[in-house]
C-alpha cells in the first residue's frame, strides 16, 4: 500500500495542473470518487451512522443488500420519532409512521444521476481542487481521506473518507468557506461484506394498511416544447442535468436539476394557489439550502447542497420563456 501511495505521489510531479504540492491528479481524485460510488452500490453492508446537521446529531441504522434478484436498502432512524426509508431496486419509500404517511418515488435509471461518470470529471475539476489526504480511522476501519476543495464560494467543500480495502465511504463531511462542518454523515459501526438477513430489508410498515396514506410522486418527461422555464444567470460551474414534470403533493410542478458534478440543485416551479401570494423564505438543513419565492402566479422552490447565496441565485433567476410560436 505504501509503495502504491509513493508511486501515486511521485506521479504527481508529472502533472502540470497540480500546482499545489498535495493536489492530486484529477484522474486519481475521480478514481477515488468512482471507487466510493461503486462500493456503496455493489457491496453488502450494514451499520450505524450519525447524521449531523447544524447542532443536531441523529443516529440511524442502514442495510444494503445486492444480489441476483436486485438491489435493496433500508434505513431506520434510531433517535426521535420512528422513520424509515426503504429502497427496492428503483422504488424508494419514506415512511412517517407518526402521521401514517408513506411517500413513494419511482427512480428512473435513465434519468437518475448516473453514478460518477467520466463526463463529470471536467465539471468537478473546473469547480474543485481534488486532494488526496492522510489515512484516518472511522468506525474501526482505516480509511483514505479525499478532499474536494471548492474554487469559489458558490459551493461547499467535501471531505470523504473511504475504507482502504473496499472504498466504501465511511464518512462524508460538507464544509463551508470557513472550513466549518455544515453536514456530516459518519459510520460509528459498520460490517462490510458478508450475509445480510433478507428480513432486514423489508419495510416495518404496510403503507396499504387501513389508516395509512400512500403518496406517489409521478414523473413525466417534458417534451421540448413544454419546457417553459429557464434559469438565466445561473451560478458558474452548474450545468443543467435534466428537466422534467412531476406531481408533488398532488400539484403539478416542473423540476429542473443542475449540478457541478458534486452538488446538485433542484428548482421546482408550480402554479400558486389562486388568491394567495407565497411568502419568500430561506431555510437550511445541514448542507441543504431551501429558498421559496413567489414569481407572478407561480411558486419557485430552489433547494440543493449549496450555500444559501447560490440557491437564492437559482431561485431568483427563474424566467418564463417566451412561448414557442408566439412572436
Amino acid at each position: 500500500m505504501k509503495a502504491l501511495l509513493a508511486a501515486l505521489l511521485l506521479g504527481l510531479g508529472a502533472i502540470p495542473l497540480a500546482s499545489a504540492a498535495d493536489a492530486t491528479s484529477p484522474a486519481e481524485g475521480m478514481r477515488l470518487l468512482r471507487q466510493m460510488a461503486n462500493a456503496a452500490r455493489q457491496l453488502n453492508y450494514s451499520g450505524t451512522f450519525v447524521y449531523r446537521h447544524g447542532a443536531q446529531i441523529e443516529t440511524s441504522r442502514i442495510w444494503h443488500l445486492t444480489d441476483a434478484s436486485g438491489d435493496y436498502e433500508r434505513l431506520e432512524t434510531l433517535d426521535g420519532p420512528r422513520r424509515e426509508v426503504v429502497r427496492s431496486n428503483e422504488e424508494v419509500t419514506c415512511f412517517y409512521p407518526g402521521s401514517k404517511t408513506a411517500k413513494v418515488e419511482q427512480w428512473n435509471s435513465s434519468r437518475r444521476f448516473p453514478g460518477v461518470v467520466s463526463e463529470q470529471l471536467a465539471a468537478i475539476v473546473a469547480s474543485y481542487t481534488v486532494r488526496k489526504g492522510a489515512i484516518d480511522r472511522v468506525a474501526g476501519y482505516d480509511c483514505q481521506i479525499a478532499t474536494l476543495e471548492p474554487r469559489d464560494t458558490l459551493r461547499y467543500g467535501h471531505v470523504f473518507c473511504a475504507e482502504l480495502k473496499s472504498g466504501l465511504p465511511l464518512r462524508a463531511r460538507t464544509v463551508n468557506e470557513r472550513n466549518e462542518t455544515v453536514e456530516l454523515f459518519a459510520f460509528t459501526q459498520v460490517d462490510i461484506g458478508g450475509e445480510i438477513p433478507r428480513e432486514k430489508l423489508r419495510p416495518s410498515y404496510d403503507p396499504l394498511a387501513p389508516g395509512w396514506k400512500l403518496e406517489r410522486s409521478a414523473l413525466s418527461q417534458n417534451a421540448e416544447s413544454d419546457m417553459r422555464w429557464t434559469v438565466l444567470n445561473r451560478p458558474a460551474g452548474f450545468r443543467k442535468v435534466l428537466e422534467l414534470k412531476r406531481t408533488i403533493q398532488g400539484k403539478s410542478a416542473a423540476q429542473i436539476v443542475f449540478s457541478d458534478g458534486l452538488a446538485a440543485v433542484s428548482v421546482f416551479i408550480e402554479p400558486a394557489v389562486v388568491g394567495t401570494r407565497a411568502a419568500q423564505e430561506l431555510t437550511h438543513q445541514g448542507a441543504i439550502s431551501i429558498f421559496i419565492r413567489p414569481q407572478a402566479d407561480y411558486v419557485v422552490t430552489a433547494l440543493g447542497e449549496a450555500p444559501a447565496a447560490t440557491i437564492m441565485q437559482f431561485g431568483n433567476s427563474v424566467m418564463l420563456r417566451s412561448k414557442p410560436g408566439s412572436r
Binding site: F49, Q56, E58, I62, V85, V116
Partner: peptide, 14 residues
C-alpha cells in the same frame, strides 16, 4: 450516487 441511501435521512429527519 456516492453514499447510497444514507443521504435520504435528510428527508425523514425529525
Amino acid at each position: 450516487a456516492i453514499q447510497g441511501l444514507a443521504p435520504y435521512v435528510r428527508t425523514v429527519t425529525s
